[in-house]
Design a protein around this nucleic acid. Structure first.
Lengths: 247, 247
DNA sequence: CGGAATGTTGATTATATTCAACTGTTGTGG
DNA sequence: CCACAACAGTTGAATATAATCAACATTCCG
C-alpha cells in the first residue's frame, strides 16, 4: 500500500488515504449512495483498496468471491472462458460500476473471470458487512432487491441479444446503444468502443475477423465510418433498422 | 404420447374456493413460504386465480406486468420472439414455479412472452401488495434479494450455455442436467423432455430439424436412445464429456 | 528501433438454417 | 368409427453464416 501509483496516473497517491478514498468510492455506488454516513463508514472500514495492472485477473472463475468489487477507475471485463480458449465477454464495467453483488450475498463461487482491461483501482467490500447490513437495514435490503431486479432485466436483454442470430444485428444493436451525439450539433453520432476490437467481438459473440468484416461492410454501405476505436455513425436510421429486424 | 391429466374437473372446482387454493399456491412458493399466515392471507386476498388453455398467451411481451405469476399446475414457456418469427425459449416453468418478480417489483413491461404449454391454473399477485410487503417486512425484502440473486446466477449460466457455440454441446449439457436415475438401479438414466421437441429446440437455440439430427447422431453413437419425449441416457460419461469441452 | 499485441484480408471449411417433401400423431366433427 | 385437418417430427439437398487457417499490416509501448 506504500507502492507508488504508476507515474502516468495523474491522481494523488490513492493508497495513502485508504478510508477517504474508500468512502468516496462507496458513496459513488448506486447500491450504497442512500446509506447513512455511519453505515458507509462501516463498509469502508471493512473494505479493501486494490490496484491491479492491465490484463491482470481480479477474480478468477470458481474462486470464492472476495466480496463486492467496485471500480474507482479503469475498466474490466466479465468473461466466460471455455477450455478450448474461446471466450465470451458478458459485460464490460467502467468507473463507478460494480460486480459480484449476487454471488457475494449468496457466498457462491465467482461465476465468471473478472479481468482488468486497463490499470484499475478497485474497492472490495467483503460479504460479511454486506450481509450484516442486509439483516439490519431494511431500506438497504429493499435497495438491493431493486438493484438485483434491474440487473436481472439487463441480463435478460443481454440474453435476448445473444439469441438474435445475426452477428450484424447484434453489432448494429450494440453500436446503437453506445451512440453519443457528436459535438457538431446535427452531425454524426459517435461511438467510442470501450475495449479493443477483439474484446468487443467477444462481447458480441463473434471472432475478431468477423467483427472486422462486419464493420467494413457497414462502412462500405455508408452507415458508419471507422477510425480505430472511434466509430462515427453516419446513418443512424439504417443502423436502427439493421438492429431491429433481419436486414 | 402420454396421457395428460385433462382438467375436466381437476380435483375440485378451483374457482369455487379461491382463497383456499390461492393460499395453498402461495404457501407453495419459495418466495412466500416463510411469511406469516397473516401476510400470506393478505397476498391471497389481492391475488387472482386464472385458468388458461394450452397455447394461450398468459402475458404478452411489452404488456404491463399484472403481477407475479405462479403456476399451480401445468407448464409454460418464457419466450422471446423476433419479428421474423423465430423464437428463443428462455425458460420453461412447471408447477410451483413463478415468473415476473423482477418486472413486477420495478413495474416494468413484461420482457418476454409467457405462453401456456399445457392447460394451466395460475395465481397472479399484483405489484401493489408485493411492494407493500417489501416496504413493511424486512425479512421478506431479504428473501426477495436472495431469490433474485439466485435467479441472476441461473440466468448467467443460461447465458453461458447459449455462448458455447456447438448445438451438440448445449444439448448434451441440457440432457445431463435433466437426467434422472432410471428405476432399475444400475441401469440407464432417464430424461423426460418438459415440452415438445420443437420447443426444446427453441430452448437450446436451434431449429427442430437440427435437434432431430443431433439426437439421431447421439443415438447412432450409442449415447442415448430416443422414444418420443422419453430419452434414455446409455453412456453418461460420454454425454458429460460432450457437454464439457468441444466434442 | 524492435517486438508483441492488435487488426485486416482472403481462402477454405464447419455448422446450422432453409426449403421441401414426407411420415406420424392427435383431436374433431361428419 | 373413420376421415381429415393441424401439428409434430424426420430426412435430404442446397444454402448461408461465421469459424478457422494463414499471411500480412498496423499500432502500441518499452
Amino acid at each position: 500500500m506504500q507502492a507508488r501509483p504508476r507515474p502516468k496516473t495523474p491522481t494523488a497517491p490513492a493508497q495513502a488515504r485508504d478510508l477517504r478514498v474508500l468512502e468516496g468510492v462507496i458513496n459513488g455506488l448506486p447500491a450504497f449512495r442512500q446509506l447513512s454516513r455511519a453505515d458507509q463508514a462501516m463498509l469502508a472500514n471493512h473494505a479493501q483498496l486494490r490496484e491491479v495492472r492491465r490484463a491482470a485477473a481480479i477474480v478468477r472463475r470458481g474462486e470464492r468471491m472476495p466480496g463486492l468489487v467496485a471500480l474507482a477507475y479503469g475498466s474490466a471485463k466479465l468473461a466466460l472462458r471455455r477450455p478450448s480458449g474461446e471466450e465470451k465477454v458478458v459485460r464490460i464495467i467502467g468507473p463507478g460500476e460494480c460486480f459480484g453483488l449476487a454471488s457475494s450475498l449468496l457466498d457462491r463461487p465467482c461465476p465468471v473471470d473478472l479481468v482488468a482491461l486497463t490499470d484499475c483501482l478497485l474497492a472490495t467490500v467483503p460479504p460479511v458487512p454486506l450481509l450484516r447490513l442486509l439483516e439490519g437495514n431494511a431500506a438497504f435490503a429493499r435497495n438491493v432487491a431493486r438493484l438485483l431486479a434491474e440487473r436481472m432485466l439487463e441480463l435478460l436483454s443481454e440474453l435476448e441479444a445473444s439469441a438474435q442470430h445475426s452477428g450484424l444485428q447484434r453489432l448494429a444493436c450494440y453500436l446503437d446503444s453506445l451512440a453519443q451525439p457528436g459535438e457538431p450539433p446535427g452531425g454524426a453520432w459517435i461511438v467510442r468502443l470501450p475495449a479493443t476490437k477483439t474484446t468487443v467481438a467477444a462481447r458480441l459473440g463473434v471472432k475478431k475477423e468477423t467483427l472486422s468484416r462486419m464493420l467494413r461492410q457497414l462502412a462500405a454501405d455508408g452507415v458508419v465510418q471507422v477510425a480505430g476505436r472511434e466509430i462515427a455513425v453516419l446513418d443512424r436510421a439504417t443502423l436502427a433498422r439493421l438492429a431491429g429486424a433481419h436486414g
